[in-house]
């Protein structure tokens, strides 16, 4: 089940909405994406940073997991 651009846009909207009062969080997320694209960090690096950034937001973490390659997953604390 390959994700589409619309899925990415929808997820990004969800992040923006949840952190509407903390725009810095979304900016931090964009920084992580930039570093990933420039290959400053790899997939495990992204996972580490995103799991810290979205700590306490299991829905965002589960949404993010859908974009990870097989074998990678951020564990959600329950």
């Amino acid at each position: 089940q390959r994700l589409k651009v619309e899925d990415a846009l929808s997820y990004l909207d969800q992040v923006k909405l949840q952190f509407g009062s903390q725009p810095q969080v979304y900016n931090d997320f964009l920084d992580i994406m930039k570093e990933f694209k420039s290959q400053s960090i790899d997939t495990p690096g992204v996972i580490s940073r995103v799991s810290q950034l979205f700590k306490g937001h299991p829905d965002l973490i589960m949404g993010f997991n859908t974009f990870l390659p097989p074998g990678y997953k951020i564990e959600v604390q329950t």
Binding site: L3, A8, L9, L12, L30, M33, K34, K37, T66, P69
Partner: peptide, 19 residues
């Protein structure tokens, strides 16, 4: 390891475009 969907998410986040 390739992460095509993560790359797609990054591209959409940064440019709004498909890779």
């Amino acid at each position: 390891l390739a992460a095509p969907q993560l790359i797609m998410l990054a591209n959409v986040a940064l440019t709004g475009e498909v890779n």
